[in-house]
């Protein structure tokens, strides 16, 4: 009897959770098709009474939309690839090679995880100026091409791979490069895929960084470009929500197609 009660309580709670998770998105997407008057006349409605495309039309007309989209893909895509390479190399060194200073390096990596970005904003901006990297792709990408989080996560994963595997390879005369490339990386594919998804997601969503590095519209990423619609004085809900929906869309699509790596991926590989 009491287990029955527990089971139904569980599903009631899960049901509430699902509603809470979904309602903001339904409201956001529906809101992007609602006029200001419609939105305010019936705030308790989730869906519009009349549909309008005005928000999307203004974005399409006033922004070099495809260029922003391309920039977002270049920034998030290239940075993710570099990040996976550098993170996994560093994690390999920390997890599989015993060398002097590896402890220091590990603590250095962990420590950088703890620095809020706002602290380093001005020094980094001045550095980028001295490198001549402001408003360029390399300026956007290189400083973001590694992440302490990724190194930490992959190191934890690499440690769990049995050492016998690389010892066997070493007996066959394989060096670190080969062990890394042909043994460890293939075994870590699921973890790398998951990390790729997390990186891509964070980079895609990043707003402050592209705003700092770029200034011309041609170099802007999509979220940075969309800030043009949030005004000091005038806020147009439909445009803001349309912008939010557009920048969410590629991630949402990726999520549906690569769900395995978002959710099941981590689950089947285990994070040890």
């Amino acid at each position: 009897m009491s287990t029955k009660f527990h089971v139904s309580l569980k599903w009631v709670l899960l049901g509430i959770g699902v509603l809470a998770a979904l309602i903001p998105f339904i409201w956001m997407i529906a809101g992007s098709f609602r006029s200001e008057a419609d939105l305010f006349a019936a705030p308790e409605r989730l869906l519009p009474t009349t549909w309008t495309l005005d928000g999307y039309i203004s974005i399409w007309q006033e922004l070099p939309f495809l260029r922003l989209l391309l920039n977002s893909f270049i920034f998030a895509g290239v940075t993710t690839v570099l990040c996976l390479l550098f993170d996994s190399m560093c994690a390999y060194a920390l997890a599989r090679i015993q060398f002097r200073g590896s402890n220091v390096l590990f603590w250095l990596v962990i420590a950088t995880l703890m620095v809020p970005f706002q602290v380093t904003l001005i020094p980094v901006f001045i550095e980028l100026f001295h490198f001549g990297w402001l408003d360029t792709y390399q300026g956007l990408i290189i400083p973001r091409a590694t992440s302490a989080f990724g190194i930490f996560m992959l190191r934890q994963f690499f440690i769990s791979i049995p050492r016998e595997l690389d010892e066997a390879a070493r007996i066959d005369g394989a060096g670190h490069l080969r062990i890394y490339w042909t043994i460890i990386l293939p075994l870590a594919k699921p973890a790398l895929a998951t990390l790729a998804v997390l990186h891509f997601m964070n980079l895609w969503n990043d707003l402050l960084w592209p705003l700092i590095v770029t200034s011309s519209t041609e170099m802007r990423t999509l979220p940075a470009g969309l800030t043009l619609f949030g005004g000091q004085h005038v806020t147009d809900h439909a445009v803001l929500l349309a912008g939010a929906t557009i920048s969410l869309l590629p991630l949402a699509l990726a999520f549906f197609f690569a769900q395995k790596y978002f959710v099941a991926g981590i689950a089947t590989t285990g994070l040890k």
Partner: peptide, 14 residues
């Protein structure tokens, strides 16, 4: 080049 006021406050002084 239009950018949010916040961004100008972050970058313009330096």
């Amino acid at each position: 080049e239009v950018q949010p006021w916040d961004t100008i406050a972050q970058k313009l002084p330096s």
